[in-house]
Write a protein that binds this DNA or RNA. Structure first.
Lengths: 338, 338
DNA sequence: TTTATTTTTGGGAACGTTCCCGAAAATATC
DNA sequence: GATATTTTCGGGAACGTTCCCAAAAATAAA
C-alpha cells in the first residue's frame, strides 16, 4: 500500500542500497541512476519510514524546548526562533511545560530521553546547584543548551542569553547623557544570576558616570509575599513617593514591576516622564500597550531561540560551535523617558 | 550497553515474547513470571525502544496542535489543556505554527504525516471551503479534531468550541436584566462562522428581550485597513460618540476591539460603565489589566484543549466519542458593566 | 588487448520490537 | 492415572531502513 524503499528500487531498476544512497545524498552514484531513482520516488510519492530510519540512525529529528510556564509570551517568541532554524534543518520542535517544578522537569526529561530526542533547549526554573549538576550529567547523554544561564555557578554547558550587565549599564549611560544624575533601582528577590547581572550592570553604570550609589534608592520587591509583580511595582512607587528626595530615573529589573510603578506614580500625581524617568527590562507585550508606554530594554528573543537551535543542531552533528553566547539588549524608547 | 528486551528476558529467565507481553499488559501471563519480568525491567532500567515499537505499531505516541500564530496566549492555554490529557495518556504534543498561511499549514501537515503523527488538533486560519475539503480528506489518513469550527459549511469532522451564539445571547439577557434597553455591537470583518455565531447570538438576545435591532448601533470594524484591533476599537468609540443617541450597552465580538473602545470613551469624557456598558469576548489577559477592567465572555480554553485531546486520543484508539462539542462561555463581570 | 584502478552497485545482516502459531506446562475431567 | 482442556510460554518472521563488504561495471594505465 504505502511505498517502501523496495518499491522505489524496483521501479527504478536498482537495488535498495542505491535508493538509500540517493536518499541520503551520498556520493558515488552515477548521475543517470540518481535521476532514475528520483523520478521513481516522485512517481510513487515515496517518503522513507520515520521509524525504520530511526531504528538505524537513532535520530528522531526532534528537539525539545523545556519551558517553565505557558503564561508568558517570551517563550512563544523564543519557541518561534527555535522553530525557524529547526524546521529549516528538518527538525520538529517539542514544547514541554514543566510547570515550574524541578520534578516535572526531570520526569519530562526522562520521557524525552526514552523517546530518543536529539537535543534539548533548557529554560529551567530551578537555579539550584543540584539542577546544574543534573543538567551537566544530562548533557553527557544528549546535547543540551541552556537558555539564560540562571545559575550562579560557572558551567561549561552551552548557553544563550542577553547581556543583562552591559544592557543595563548602557541604559544608565543613556539616561546620564540625557541629563539624569540620580538613579533608583527596583530589584526583585529571585536570587538568580540573570537578575543579579542586571543589578551589577546598574552599579557599573553608576560607576562609569562617577555617581555614588544611594542605598535608599534601591527598592527590593517582596514578591514572595505577593507574586503579583504589578502590585509590587505599585508598592515601589509608594516607597519612592515617600522619600524626601526622589531619583530622577528609575530602572527596574523587569517590566511588570516598572509598569506597576508607572501606574501608581500616575495615581499619586507624579508625572512620568517629566518628574521621573522609568526604564523596564524585557519588553513584554503589555509594555507597549499601557499609557504612558514603557521605555524598556528589549531582548532579541527570537534571535536567542535561533541561536540556541543552531548550537543544539551543531552539537547533534558533532560540529564545533561558539557555545556561550551573549547578545546585547536594545533600549526601546517610549513614553516613560524623555 | 543500553538494555534491550532480550537482556530483560535473559535476566528474568523467560523469552522476549513474555517480556513483550508484560510490557503491553497483555493477559495470559502467570503472576509470578510477571513479577520476575518487572523486577528485571527495574533492575536493568529498561525502557523499550521508541523506534522498534514504532516500526511495529506505527504509533509515535505524539499528537500535533496546529496553531496559526504564536503571539496569542489563547493558544498557550489551549496547548496546556491538550498537554494535560496527552501526557496522562503517554502522548507528547507538538505545537506547530503555521504563520497564518494555508500553504504552511499543508506543508507542515505533510511533514507530520511523514512522521506518522497519531493525531492532529487543527486551529486553522484558512476558513475556505477548500481548506475544509482538505481537512476532511486528511481525516481519512489521521484523526483530526477541529478547534473552533470556523467554516460556514457543515461538516462531519469532530470539533470543540464555545457556543458563541448562546454565550452572547445570554450576555444580552444579563444586560437586559440589569436594566439596559438599547444595545450596540462591534463586529469585525473576518467572515467566519465563529464571529458570525456571536453576532447571531446578539440578534437572538435582542429578540428574546423584544428589542428591535437598530442598524446604526452596529459598528463594523475595518481591520483590513489597519490590523490593530485596539485602534479599530477607538474608531468604534468615535463612531458611537458621534451619534445623537448612544446605546446603553455595547457588546464586542472580541476583547481587543472592546478595549480600544473603552479607552477612547475615557478620552472623550464618556464614562464607562456609568454612561455606557461594554462587554468583550475572549477574556484575553490584557482585559483584566486595563483600567477599567473589561467585563467579558470567557472561553473555557483549557477545557477546550482537554476535550480536543480526549477526542483525538479516543479516535486513535478507535473508541466512540461525542465528536462535536460546544461549551458555554462564562460572563466575567468586571468594571465596564454596572 | 590485457591488466590495474576507480567508480558504481547489490545483497546480507542488523536495529529491537510485536504478532502469530505451535509447543509446553498446568489444570481439569474422567 | 490417563486424557482433554486451558493456560502460559517460546521461537520465527516481519516491519523498512542503513551500513558494510564484496562484486560488477566503467575507466585508466600498460
Amino acid at each position: 500500500m504505502i511505498a517502501t524503499i523496495f518499491d522505489v528500487a524496483k521501479e527504478a531498476g536498482v537495488s535498495k542500497s542505491t535508493v538509500s544512497r540517493v536518499l541520503n545524498h551520498e556520493p558515488g552514484v552515477k548521475e543517470s541512476t540518481r535521476a532514475a531513482v528520483e523520478t521513481a520516488i516522485e512517481k510513487l510519492n515515496y517518503s522513507p519510514s520515520y521509524f525504520a530510519q530511526g531504528i538505524r540512525t537513532g535520530k528522531t529529528m526532534t528537539i525539545a524546548v523545556m519551558v517553565p510556564e505557558y503564561t508568558n509570551l517570551f517563550y512563544n517568541e523564543l519557541f518561534r526562533g527555535v522553530e525557524d532554524v529547526a524546521l529549516a534543518n528538518g527538525y520538529l520542535v517539542l514544547m514541554c511545560n514543566t510547570e515550574r517544578r524541578s520534578t516535572t522537569e526531570k520526569d519530562y526529561t526522562e520521557e524525552l530521553l526514552n523517546r530518543n530526542i536529539d537535543g534539548i533547549i533548557y529554560n529551567t526554573y530551578d537555579a539550584s546547584p543540584e539542577m546544574l549538576k543534573y543538567l551537566e550529567k544530562l548533557s553527557e547523554r544528549v546535547p543540551v543548551v541552556l537558555m539564560n544561564k540562571i545559575f550562579r555557578e560557572n558551567t561549561t554547558l552551552p548557553y544563550v542569553m542577553t547581556d543583562g550587565f552591559n544592557s543595563t549599564r548602557n541604559a544608565v549611560k543613556y539616561l546620564y547623557d540625557q541629563g539624569k544624575r540620580t538613579f533608583g533601582y527596583i530589584q526583585n528577590m529571585k536570587n538568580i544570576s540573570v537578575t543579579e547581572d542586571r543589578y551589577l550592570g546598574f552599579l557599573q553604570g553608576l560607576k562609569d558616570c562617577n555617581i555614588e550609589l544611594r542605598e535608599e534608592f534601591v527598592y527590593q520587591a517582596e514578591e514572595d509575599k505577593d507574586p503579583d509583580y504589578i502590585k509590587q511595582g505599585c508598592m515601589a512607587a509608594e516607597y519612592f513617593a515617600s522619600l524626601s528626595e526622589r531619583p530622577e530615573a528609575i530602572l527596574s529589573v523587569i517590566d511588570a514591576l516598572a509598569i506597576g510603578c508607572v501606574q501608581q506614580f500616575k495615581k499619586l500625581g507624579i508625572n512620568v516622564p517629566e518628574e521621573v524617568n522609568i526604564v523596564g527590562y524585557d519588553n513584554i507585550s503589555l509594555s507597549a500597550l499601557i499609557n504612558p508606554a514603557l521605555t524598556t530594554i528589549s531582548q532579541p528573543i527570537r534571535k536567542l531561540g535561533q541561536k540556541a537551535a543552531e548550537i543544539v543542531i551543531a552539537k547533534i552533528n558533532g560540529q564545533p560551535v561558539d557555545e556561550q553566547v551573549l547578545y546585547e539588549g536594545e533600549l526601546v524608547l517610549r513614553d516613560t523617558t524623555d
